[in-house]
């Protein structure tokens, strides 16, 4: 019993440290073990199935900035006006500037930020419009526009921004070729830690 008491007292002293400091528990755990694949792993595990070309084609609908992935079809500015006024106008406004949601139209100077994050001043690639609209728009019925309707509404939005002519036709060839004023704005991330604030 006596031995136990002595042991407890010594544990208490060791545990508390200096009595005049607030008791803290700033115990730092050792560096995390880098949990990599075990060395005993086989070259492949084989869990999962082969993806057939048909399976890939079903979901591989994204569009790259050079136009890769754009489907066949086409649309004019006039056709796009009709799509816009039935599908888009409630959120983006009659001229693409009124909202209540994202403003689409504008070529104004940078100082207008953040309202200047518009297609005509900021978007660097016209292909992004297709990639986004065909999947995510209209907000309440996403993914319902046909390729033709999507090309058409893009033609109209680009025309409202003054980037294509009134008789423009958008398709897999013409869309990637549209020169976007925002293209040269973008620079890579140059933050890299260390003492410098970037």
């Amino acid at each position: 019993m006596k031995r136990l008491s002595v042991l407890m007292v010594s544990v208490l002293f060791t545990g508390c440290g200096q009595a005049d400091l607030p008791v803290t528990t700033s115990d730092v755990l050792p560096t995390e073990v880098a949990d990599r694949l075990p060395l005993s792993s086989p070259r492949t595990f084989g869990f999962g199935g082969e993806a057939t070309d048909e399976r890939i084609a079903m979901w591989d609908i994204d569009v790259k900035p050079d136009g890769e992935g754009l489907p066949s079809g086409s649309g004019t500015v006039a056709q796009g006006k009709l799509v816009y006024e039935t599908q888009c106008i409630a959120c983006h406004g009659a001229t693409g500037t009124e909202g209540p949601f994202d403003r689409l139209v504008g070529t104004g100077p940078w100082e207008e930020w953040p309202s200047a994050r518009v297609v005509g001043a900021y978007w660097p690639y016209a292909t992004t419009l297709f990639d986004y609209i065909v999947k995510a728009m209209p907000q309440l019925t996403p993914g319902t526009l046909t390729a033709d309707q999507t090309y058409a509404v893009i033609a109209y939005v680009l025309n409202m921004n003054g980037l294509v002519a009134d008789d423009a036709v958008m398709d897999a060839t013409t869309l990637p070729a549209v020169e976007m004023p925002g293209r040269d704005r973008f620079v890579p991330d140059d933050r890299k830690g260390g003492p410098e604030v970037r």
Partner: peptide, 10 residues
Amino acid sequence: RPTMTREETS
């Protein structure tokens, strides 16, 4: 190459 989606451009 990057796809340049809406969330990494606009």
